[in-house]
């Protein structure tokens, strides 16, 4: 990898200032970014580590019952510390990568990268979470803008992600065992006012909501309510791991499993 300047600020304000330099890049846990740098797919002039910012660490339950997770919180910490307050999300965090990756990779890094097969985007979109940055709050529905693309501006930092806690939720991941990403992953969350279904791993547009399934499940929350519903394979990812048709089929299967797991 090409060399770069390294900075490790201890406050969000200092991190924002450091990211103001041209070609500076934020570094979360580096579990995607470091391999990317090794392949010389990116060559930032400076890396600004977010791991030294105390206020971006940890899981806490807010007064309104929502769960706020600091942007620099590693997956292993979420898996442990959110297990009581939001078990389905903790379970999702505990399925990312492998134990060593989960000790480094962070929620902010994963969400900002918006890999089309990453787990967190499904949990964030499926929960209807709010992405909190150093300048604003962005609803998950407005945040994910397609494969590796988000509403974040240059130099904007995800300081936390705030999750409303549903009545029941489940993430069902069909593992791609070599990469440990989701071949298809479906997050189903049942709230008092309706059901949200978010799908990762499947679409060329990245994470998406399956609205037909949401409508059917909001009327009747049973796996059978999905009978006859299918995903159009046209926009699905087709690669050596699975064809477009295969992924479209898996979306329905994993959605049914997620519903069954909620009941």
């Amino acid at each position: 990898m090409y060399n770069f300047e390294f900075e490790k600020p201890s406050t969000i304000a200092d991190a924002v200032a450091a990211l103001g330099d041209e070609d500076a890049q934020a570094l979360g846990g580096g579990q995607t970014l470091i391999p990317t740098l090794k392949q010389r797919l990116a060559s930032p002039s400076a890396l600004v580590s977010l791991s030294g910012i105390a206020e971006m660490q940890g899981v806490c339950v807010e007064d309104d019952g929502s769960v706020a997770i600091g942007g620099a919180t590693p997956h292993a910490v979420v898996a442990r510390e959110a297990a009581g307050s939001y078990p389905a999300l903790a379970a999702l965090a505990g399925q990312i990568g492998d134990p060593a990756v989960r000790n480094r990779g962070t929620i902010g890094g994963s969400v900002a990268n918006n890999d089309p097969a990453a787990c967190y985007p499904a949990g964030v979109l499926g929960s209807g979470a709010t992405i909190v940055t150093n300048t604003r709050q962005i609803a998950a529905d407005d945040f994910f803008e397609g494969m590796f693309s988000t509403a974040l501006e240059e130099g904007e930092i995800i300081t936390s992600v705030r999750f409303p806690v549903p009545q029941a939720a489940s993430y069902q991941k069909f593992l791609q065992p070599a990469s440990r990403f989701a071949l298809v992953g479906v997050y189903v969350a049942r709230f008092a006012d309706g059901v949200r279904v978010a799908v990762t791993g499947a679409s060329e547009d990245g994470v998406f909501r399956w609205s037909e399934a949401e409508q059917a499940l909001s009327k009747e929350f049973r796996a059978d309510a999905l009978m006859g519903l299918s995903i159009n394979p046209m926009n699905m990812i087709g690669d050596l791991h699975g064809s477009k048709d295969y992924r479209a089929h898996l979306v329905a299967v994993m959605t049914k499993r997620a519903v069954a797991a909620c009941l």
């Binding site: 580096g30 470091i34 890396l47 580590s49 134990p99 060593a100 990756v101 480094r104």
Partner: peptide, 19 residues
């Protein structure tokens, strides 16, 4: 390349020494 950093397992080829 797994080592322990502050008690947790990490892949040392995927972590900067400065971190």
């Amino acid at each position: 390349c797994v080592v322990h950093v502050n008690g947790g397992a990490v892949k040392s080829c995927n972590m900067l020494a400065v971190e």
